[in-house]
């Protein structure tokens, strides 16, 4: 008995004093508030998984909306001196760059940042929590196998008129697709797409519903994770196309906010979410790609080695472009 006691007490000291201090702090805080653009159902499941690891935390309060809405609300609250959110995750990089400059993010020197390729982190501040493969989406009950396109280019053909779906000018993902495809396919491409009068859907959910109901034949701003959820989890007839010319890539960061009301809980969440365990869980629940090289993709989604990723190279010019994009996009689709 004595031996067992010594061995089990030794197990406890494997957690360092610093880590224990964070856990104790989190116990006192008792709560964690996440502001996220991850869809509600997976977000709930993800928080539940986090809670299983740290059962003393209340994770019932979270704010979910589209990336820009989350960012807007956070900014309004911050400027009014309200501290509600602990950690923010949205699918847009420029706000995080701005937040580092303005000192709105907490610096958290965790070893987990070293486990990411350097293009996906700003060590201490944020890292890519989810990575999106921007693909084509379709309903296999609407398009037969020989009707399914293989290239972005063929979508410019007039036969796709009125059958395409896109996201609005406020969508960062749409901006990335526009920017990267313009480089690969040339300036005329988007004008041709515009002439096909694509329909605009705000958010993945709306696009999915449009595909399910047959309102569009092909979604041009669709996500690998959405296809995973539909095809694997719901077993619905929605499928994805990783087009030949390449797959635009969007990395959605996550960081701790400087004014987080529960800083220790925030640290526990961030470290877990960015760890191999948390990333594997993320892939399993929501199906996005992980920026970590040691985490495989979602079931039946192709690994990054099998397709060409198109990334935004110069983030500074892209940030400027992002501000102009709503007007550019309006000119194209109207």
């Amino acid at each position: 008995m004595f031996l067992v006691a010594i061995l089990t007490s030794g197990w406890h000291t494997l957690v360092s004093a610093a880590e224990q201090a964070v856990i104790d702090g989190a116990k006192k805080e008792g709560k964690f508030v996440w502001y996220t653009s991850m869809p509600t159902e997976p977000a709930v499941a993800y928080l539940k998984a986090f809670k299983e690891k740290y059962p003393f935390l209340d994770v019932s309060e979270f704010f979910r909306s589209t990336s820009m809405n989350v960012w807007s609300r956070f900014e309004t609250e911050y400027k009014a001196g309200k501290a509600i959110a602990d950690v923010m995750h949205i699918a847009a990089l420029p706000p995080y760059i701005k937040m580092v400059d303005d000192g709105w993010l907490m610096k958290f020197d965790s070893p987990v940042y070293k486990e990411y390729p350097k293009e996906y982190v700003n060590p201490g501040y944020y890292a890519a929590f989810r990575s999106f493969a921007m693909i084509g989406g379709y309903n296999k009950e609407v398009l037969s196998p020989n009707q399914v396109p293989k290239t972005w280019k063929e979508l410019a053909d007039p036969k796709w008129k009125g059958k395409l779906g896109v996201e609005p000018g406020s969508s960062g993902a749409q901006a990335v697709i526009y920017h990267t495809l313009k480089e690969v396919l040339g300036g005329q491409y988007w004008e041709q797409i515009g002439r096909n009068k694509p329909k605009v859907y705000t958010g993945t959910g709306a696009t999915t519903v449009a595909l399910q109901r047959g309102e569009i034949d092909l979604a041009m701003c669709y996500y690998g994770y959405a296809v995973y959820e539909e095809r694997e989890l719901k077993k619905s007839p929605i499928m994805g196309i990783w087009f030949e010319e390449g797959t635009p890539r969007v990395d959605a960061p996550m960081g701790i906010l400087k004014n987080a009301p529960h800083p220790n809980s925030a640290k526990l969440f961030l470290e877990w979410a960015l760890s191999k365990e948390g990333q594997t869980k993320m892939v399993e629940i929501v199906g996005s790609y992980s920026a970590r090289p040691d985490v495989p993709p979602a079931k039946n989604n192709p690994p990054p080695t099998k397709f060409k990723s198109l990334v935004v190279k110069d983030i500074k010019t892209f940030t400027v472009f992002l501000n102009q994009f709503p007007d550019i996009w309006k000119g194209i689709i109207e």
């Binding site: 159902e41 509600i84 993945t204």
Partner: peptide
């Protein structure tokens, strides 16, 4: 806000995410 949500707002949010059945 996250802590003061009411049923109408939940319905509204679920609508925008396309979660019709729920």
């Amino acid at each position: 806000s996250s802590r003061s949500t009411v049923m109408s707002v939940e319905l509204y949010n679920l609508y925008w995410q396309g979660f019709y059945p729920v």
